[in-house]
Nucleic acid binder design. Sequence first.
DNA 1: GGTTGCGTTGACGTTCGCGTCAAGGCGGAG
DNA 2: CTCCGCCTTGACGCGAACGTCAACGCAACC
Lengths: 123, 123
Amino acid sequence: MRIGELARRGGTTTRALRYYESLGLLSARRDANGQREYDEADLRLVREIRSLTGIGFALEDTRPFVQCLRDGHESGDACPASVAVYRRKLAELDECLARLGAARERVRAQLEEAEQRSRPCGR
Amino acid sequence: MRIGELARRGGTTTRALRYYESLGLLSARRDANGQREYDEADLRLVREIRSLTGIGFALEDTRPFVQCLRDGHESGDACPASVAVYRRKLAELDECLARLGAARERVRAQLEEAEQRSRPCGR
DNA sequence: GGTTGCGTTGACGTTCGCGTCAAGGCGGAG
DNA sequence: CTCCGCCTTGACGCGAACGTCAACGCAACC
């Protein structure tokens, strides 16, 4: 299949696919006219990338998963490097959740205080 | 006071202050040499901006608070527009927390699953 | 022959909040 | 005089993940 079909089936755009290629995440054979030619394995890679970035992974973070699939594993997270990314991401998410939770609490307190001031005498 | 002192006392940089001015958040009188001249009220504005951005507010979100102080209110959040930003931010934070919490759960589940596969027979 | 639809590369634009030069002016100390 | 420290404007850089446009080629259809 060519790049347009891969984009449609992968739920993305041709621009994104070329971008992934520029990062070395994807590679393509070329046909007689110099057009990129992909197969089902490439579609699998694209779906892995989109699935992970959909969760909030950076493109760089998807690299071990893609490599894992390329190495013939049936799942992108079957390799230690991928699992390490999971762990790191989990820690990042926990830290981010803590910061946001603290921020939320500060905003909530400020809001409450401001509302108190606007109704000085109860209720 | 001039821009360097305002930056120090406000806990930021001269570059940031000029940037705020370019956004219309800050304004400055000029002395005979064309240099920016600030007073304590300006310092107050800068501290309001820094305080809010420190919580995670975008610079645009600080505008109502700054305007509120300029209008003579003793607190930047004494105006309805500021309180509205509080509410909006609170909602944004809640949504963000929900998304991140869901992402965290997905990653955690993936991680657990991957670890199961790597130790097929328990323990 | 012209149009449509697919592909190609290259390069600039976007968003945010500044950082980091560049090139110069002004005032005071030594 | 030079040097230092402060100030001025203007302009480019950054990082992420592409969007968008330009200008072109190739194949098929009418």
